[in-house]
Nucleic acid binder design. Structure first.
Lengths: 386, 386
DNA sequence: TAACTTTGTATATCCATTAAACAAAGTTTT
DNA sequence: AAAACTTTGTTTAATGGATATACAAAGTTA
């Protein structure tokens, strides 16, 4: 059954429009809002009144007059509550607490030694509780937690399948919601990263992006028109397990020639084995010291990344491709190889439209996106995001 | 500026819900509609009254009583108007006229010898006018035309880039609208095919599909939650120009190892050259006569198709992949090769979720989707599709 | 035949938006 | 400095949707 229209829906819609405008463009006066949103002045007054009542908006005093009565300027109360964001990776998890505007208030990093849901959940709730304990006093307290997981998540927040964590059918949303007693949103790690960069990072000016999470594997989050592209069965599947070499290297997924066999953190480490390097950080260090083997290695990885990025560009025709996750660290040594390869391989029309950039939030893309999801869920409660 | 809420919007929303329910499930009574849509009986009465006034709905008399007053059954007036659908391919175009429920009333096929926009446009308007001339008398006459083009189209109906037609920046929507004097919608051919199959064909039961248009090249249309996935710059780029063999065959796009070099109609013909076969139809004939070379050839093509389909499945995790366009004709000889390859290469989790089928509208997928777009545009005029 | 059901309409109420009037508090012009 | 104009934000009446309720019409069941 669809959402039918009535006066309450109308109010939800308009309130969401007004709040969104304030969040994005504050300080703003009621008169400006009326202009921007196309709503009657009286309507804006009423809605702003309620938002002030709800402590989501406050007045900061008069603005400059432009030939008439001084406007009363309104601000978004970004400290009305705080959000938890968690990025659950294979070897570690990163957790942050942000205000409603995405400023980081506190942060935790936890190493993961075991992967079974129970242990992970314990560490997860531990980190979250500890952050919650640090929340400053506020109108709403901690308004929710968002989690990004390297795996496939359904719309009810169940992790259907997370090969690297060896999880299947884990009802993460329910479990976390019950133990934290706050609303919880779960999403794929790449999707979370895409949201994070779009909202707070390198994609701020873009309307749509393809975010490539290049870590142990490769995942993708695609945002169009401000919202995540949700595919058929949960989407943001595994772009890393896309064949770029029909009879290429065997992948543990069973396929041959998977992209991530050539272009991921793991692929780089594989290439680095003859150098006696076992950790990605060391490889970066070597490159920083201009070690020619490391630099050559990154060129090779960059080229392979470029092949897959050209595929992404041809397939999706995006305006912006963002490379995120650990591979961001290798930017100086892979950037030109990527660009050269993409220019040689992508369709010229598509290539001209697409920019390729690196995630500006570094390792925080996903965690910020997860927190943002929590904020969005909170702000659109009893409000409709149109 | 966003759509703000007011009473008119509410009415639009509810009227669209009611009409949609009637279109989908008629015959229906007002009482059933009230139940199904979650709207008050009085509201439904008012809206149905207006829809009857507008000739989009009519009463067909009493239904069976279930212990009380007999219900008055309502029908969607699928003959209130007619839609034109056009599929603009490289060598020919197909044009149909359908009623509002997608039944084909008349059909035209036109060979294209020249590709310059002016000549094509002349043939196109000619075919459309001739079909319009055949429209039976009706309340609204011909309510619009939809076109599917093998190329990239922006949201204003301009063909940005159509390599096979050698078009760039052709304002097809404006030109056609002006010469036909009906509303015109333009979409990518693969998107149109996806819509057609989803609405009238093999995807009727699915909520989301990936439609692969395998003809001279390979394009994709992706539908989720009933609507087309619109990527950043127009989307439905060129999945066919996705690399599946890093150092594979040179493609005229400049890249190496493009999927469509191995898995399209053209790829099949390339393989068939030693056999002295120059047209796809002949190849099909040979296979029908059990010619072993033709059958072996199709196995090879099927395998290559499977590689790309496994990529699609891994990347999008769809519930249904539909193979459409000319390659449908080869179903008997490529089906098992495709399935074997996909099972070997796709991630098991994703593979289990995905069905692979062939388009059931055959060469009409795109043309039906184009007509459907016109119908949708007509029915949502002054109504909101929620 | 009486009691119950179901359908569809009519009516009063509610409520959100809008337009218009207006008060408050400025700036600009003369 | 006074008058005229501007801008802001509130108030008020009108508009038009949806809803709940009552009710009439037309059935079926006991």
């Amino acid at each position: 059954m669809q959402t039918t229209g009535d006066q309450f829906l109308v109010k939800k819609i308009n309130k969401a429009i007004v709040l969104d405008a304030i969040v994005r463009h504050c300080p703003l006066s009621r008169a400006q809002l009326s202009d921007m949103c196309g709503l009657n002045k009286g309507t804006v007054s009423t809605l702003v009144g309620e938002l002030i009542e709800e402590k989501l908006v406050y007045e900061i005093g008069f603005g400059r007059s432009s030939g008439g009565r001084k406007p009363v300027m309104l601000m978004f109360n970004k400290s009305a509550g705080y959000a938890i964001g968690i990025d659950l990776e294979v070897r570690h998890m990163l957790a942050v607490m942000t205000d409603l505007d995405g400023r980081v208030i506190a942060e935790r990093q936890v190493e993961l030694e075991r992967h079974d849901p129970a242990s992970v959940l314990e560490l997860l709730t531990g980190a979250a509780r500890s952050l919650i304990g640090e929340a400053p006093p506020s109108a709403y307290g901690v308004i929710g937690a968002g989690v990004g997981v390297a795996g496939i998540v359904d719309d009810k927040g169940t992790v259907l399948f997370a090969p690297n964590l060896e999880w299947e059918q884990v009802e993460l949303e329910r479990l976390l919601r019950e133990s934290l007693a706050v609303p919880v949103t779960i999403d794929n790690e790449a999707n979370a990263g895409a949201l994070g960069e779009l909202q707070y990072g390198a994609g701020k000016e873009a309307s749509g992006i393809v975010y490539l999470s290049v870590g142990a594997g490769i995942g993708a989050g695609i945002v169009t028109g401000g919202s995540l592209m949700k595919g058929a069965g949960g989407f943001s599947g595994e772009l890393g397990h896309t064949t770029i070499e029909t009879n290429g290297k065997r992948c543990r997924c069973g396929n041959k020639g998977c992209w991530e066999q050539y272009a991921s953190e793991s692929a780089a480490l594989e290439l680095a084995r003859p150098l006696g390097v076992a950790r990605f950080g060391e490889l970066i260090e070597l490159a920083k010291q201009d070690a020619p083997e490391a630099i050559r290695l990154f060129h090779e990885v960059g080229e392979s990344l470029g092949i897959g990025i050209a595929n992404v560009i041809n397939a999706f025709n995006p305006e912006l491709v963002l490379i995120g996750n650990r591979m961001v660290l290798a930017e100086p040594w892979i950037r030109t190889a990527i660009e050269r390869t993409v220019s040689a391989r992508a369709l010229p029309f598509h290539r001209r439209q697409a920019q390729i950039r690196f995630a500006s939030l570094g390792e925080r893309s996903a965690v910020m996106g997860a927190a943002f999801s929590a904020v969005t869920a909170f702000l659109s409660k009893d409000r409709v995001t149109w």
